[in-house]
């Protein structure tokens, strides 16, 4: 009995070794990596939406969504975020056209709209807490503050990022690294707008209908 395995000549699996070093230009995988981060962020929001979906009707004898939410305020907030989205788009177009001044002014306008959004949200939160409808009042309010607050925190960090990026663009111009950063923030900012569609629909509009 032979210990050798019998294979006809020419059918062995050929083995290849990839000895060449591949060139990795800086940041060539950044966009995919950042997209994967956004998708995992999306899962965080999915958990919070699920929690709100489950607890959205658990008022614990406290105020209901219909009594608390002021839809005109939410409509103004939605407008702010939508306007900031399109102004960021114009900043990206100016970046493609390599117009540094235009990029900086569009970014500044975007930051103003973002700050207005945050200010309105904080005003709403402080009103709610003042009325005794803080996060500790009921499971409904806990999940509401967690979900909307997490979105607000994302916008806050987006604003900080926007500010640092404005400094970088004004100091070093529209170099490749800054264009890449602008694109990442573009994805982040528009992604937050997508999450907000879910928030105003499922939390505010359906909450009032409930």
């Amino acid at each position: 009995m032979s210990t050798m395995t019998q294979t006809p000549p020419g059918t062995e699996n050929p083995v290849f070794y990839d000895l060449d070093e591949h060139e990795h230009p800086p940041g060539h995988s950044t966009m995919l990596g950042f997209w994967l981060y956004l998708m995992s962020d999306c899962l965080i929001f999915a958990m919070l939406f699920a929690a709100y979906g489950v607890y959205g009707g658990s008022y614990a004898g406290g105020p209901t969504a219909r009594e608390l939410f002021e839809l005109p305020l939410v409509a103004v907030n939605t407008t702010m975020l939508l306007l900031s989205s399109i102004t960021y788009g114009f900043a990206m177009i100016s970046a493609d056209e390599r117009k540094r001044g235009a990029v900086l002014s569009w970014l500044a306008i975007t930051a103003l709209f973002g700050a207005a959004f945050l200010a309105i949200e904080l005003y709403e939160f402080s009103n709610l807490i003042h009325e005794g409808a803080g996060p500790q009042r009921s499971a409904f309010l806990s999940s509401f503050f967690t979900l909307v607050g997490t979105h607000g925190l994302h916008v806050t960090f987006g604003l900080i990022w926007l500010g640092t990026l404005m400094v970088q663009v004004s100091r070093r111009g529209l170099v490749d690294a800054n264009l890449r950063r602008l694109q990442c923030l573009s994805l982040f900012w528009h992604f937050l707008d997508v999450i907000w569609i879910g928030v105003f629909t499922f939390v505010y509009l359906l909450g009032v209908l409930r």
Binding site: S85, H190, I197, G198, T201, L205, L209
Partner: peptide, 21 residues
């Protein structure tokens, strides 16, 4: 109303995905 509102939101999410993202 809830059904219509949810349908509008779904369409808007797709619009954002295509035109903004």
């Amino acid at each position: 109303t809830a059904g219509i509102v949810m349908a509008l939101a779904m369409v808007q999410i797709v619009v954002h995905m295509i035109y903004f993202l």
